[in-house]
């Protein structure tokens, strides 16, 4: 692992706005994600959390403002360039290649670590074989943290996995590339309370193994947010309305109003 300079903030969004036609989805957002922290991003439905992720990862274009990744301006970069800078993410709606094997899906996450050269892939087959073997081992180790059974299914098609295992696969896919920062978009959607807890434990364990990776997590389950995050940012209608430790924001009247409405 390359040592990261500790005075550069991993992710900074400043004055970030996103417009869809007449709709202002993000409104001059200023968010900082500090190194090694787990930042919770919460807010009612439609408040712009996924839009925020989509802009950061380059899928949507920003209408105004800037995004800096480790000090580099990535605002106008394409998704594949942003990935090269060390950003990884999961999606709210599962985006696995279901007809491909678990291994294949995982390797998609490791693009920036693998050799895509024609000569190597077509003619240096012996080297490729070695790299595939070590990649498979690393894949198994990573999957085993989440679910030892999953590690044994490396060559099964992703479609044969249950929903939770698919979620785990997506998260592993985001992690295997050794990113600098990971965006998790509602990883526990559709899970029970216990399953969510378990998933969170697994994520935190992996995070530790990877040297305290920086994570931004969008979640609806407040228990999870309370337990796992160092700080939270609350969005409403595309604007940041509150920021701080969970205990503080939970007590904030603005936040209550956003979720429950004015009384």
């Amino acid at each position: 692992m390359v040592a990261q300079s500790n005075d550069v903030i991993p992710l900074v969004a400043s004055g970030l706005s996103v417009k869809f036609g007449g709709l202002l989805a993000l409104n001059e957002l200023n968010i900082e994600v500090r190194r090694g922290e787990v930042l919770g991003l919460i807010g009612p439905n439609g408040s712009g959390k996924t839009t925020f992720f989509n802009v950061i990862s380059g899928i949507y274009a920003a209408s105004a403002g800037k995004v800096l990744l480790d000090g580099q301006d990535i605002t106008t970069l394409k998704p594949y360039q942003i990935a090269a800078h060390g950003l990884a993410r999961t999606f709210q709606r599962s985006r696995l290649c279901l007809s491909l094997s678990v291994f294949d899906n995982l390797m998609l996450g490791a693009v920036r670590r693998l050799n895509s050269g024609l000569w190597y892939n077509l003619l240096r087959r012996d080297r490729l074989a070695v790299d595939v073997r070590s990649a498979a081992e690393e894949a198994r180790d990573l999957l085993a943290v989440f679910n030892p059974d999953l590690a044994g299914k490396l060559w099964e098609p992703a479609i044969s996995l249950g929903m939770i295992d698919r979620r785990r696969l997506e998260i592993c896919r985001a992690l295997i590339g050794r990113p600098k920062i990971v965006l998790l978009d509602e990883p526990s959607a559709g899970m029970t309370h216990d399953e969510t807890n378990q998933l969170m434990n697994e994520i935190l364990e992996v995070r530790q193994n990877l040297g305290n990776l920086t994570i931004v997590i969008v979640e609806h389950e407040m228990g999870l947010i309370e337990r796992a995050t160092d700080r939270c940012v609350v969005l409403n209608y595309g604007k940041k309305i509150c920021e701080g430790k969970y205990a503080d924001i939970a007590a904030d009247p603005l936040v209550r109003e956003a979720y429950l409405g004015k009384s």
């Binding site: 990862s57 380059g58 899928i59 394409k78 998704p79 594949y80 942003i82 990935a83 090269a84 990884a88 993410r89 999606f91 985006r95 290649c97 998609l108 996450g109 693009v111 920036r112 896919r173 590339g177």
Partner: peptide, 8 residues
């Protein structure tokens, strides 16, 4: 989209 997000 997923392909490009992961760097392809």
């Amino acid at each position: 989209i997923a392909a490009s997000v992961f760097g392809l």
